[in-house]
Design a protein around this nucleic acid. Sequence first.
DNA 1: ACTGGAAATAGAAACGGTTATCATTAACGT
DNA 2: ACGTTAATGATAACCGTTTCTATTTCCAGT
Lengths: 117, 117
Amino acid sequence: MAAAMASLPGFRSAQEIHAELRRQGEAVGLTTVYRHLQVLSEQGVIDTIRDPSGESLYRQCGSTAHHHHLTCRQCGRSVEVEGRVVEQWAEKVAAEAGFTAVDHTVELFGLCPDHSG
Amino acid sequence: MAAAMASLPGFRSAQEIHAELRRQGEAVGLTTVYRHLQVLSEQGVIDTIRDPSGESLYRQCGSTAHHHHLTCRQCGRSVEVEGRVVEQWAEKVAAEAGFTAVDHTVELFGLCPDHSG
DNA sequence: ACTGGAAATAGAAACGGTTATCATTAACGT
DNA sequence: ACGTTAATGATAACCGTTTCTATTTCCAGT
């Protein structure tokens, strides 16, 4: 089930994933979907981002290494992008300001080639 | 009132701002606080970020130019940082992937020198 | 001052995503 | 089969935010 859940392409909300599973005949509850998503996320199996409205979106990614996403606002399709530049920049400004335990959130949202019209 | 609202130091949630105003004697409603924050945010007078839990935080910033924030998880104190590097990186990866209308979210959260212990 | 209408306001209710509760069901070892 | 344990899912609670709507405030014109 975990596999089926994460096999959907692009970033999807928990509720979309739930609806899709139901459509496929899985008699799964919303609670279980949330629970599994949380576990999978903690294990690093799937990635979690937040769209501008604050909703959480999930997706199984190809790389388990640290990376960021460029996601389509329309269809959820996303590209994995890595940003050594960003990491270094984050570390630098944090050090300059004397902050510790710094974590960073970097999300890119736009329109993919199919939805640019 | 708008002035009083934004005079608080550091990033604060709408509800914290509301509570603070009430403590100061202002008989203002939570609705009004949200409404003002929204207007001020649209006008670019204050900046809005989202903390890891998804809650919105507001602050009056020194610069009206585009910049990002390094914010203390404990006290909300924040440093304004500019990241030409990040902007350029974002533009580049977006162009390479053929995405348009790309917007980016870059937030840094950590512990300020006073709360690093 | 008085009036009438537009704008602002505030409390309560609604909303939406997420999380907690808890009784039920499935799974497993003995 | 049996008892124990973990997983499940319907429902309700939660919490920040938004909407609703009646009321109040503001102000121009008289």
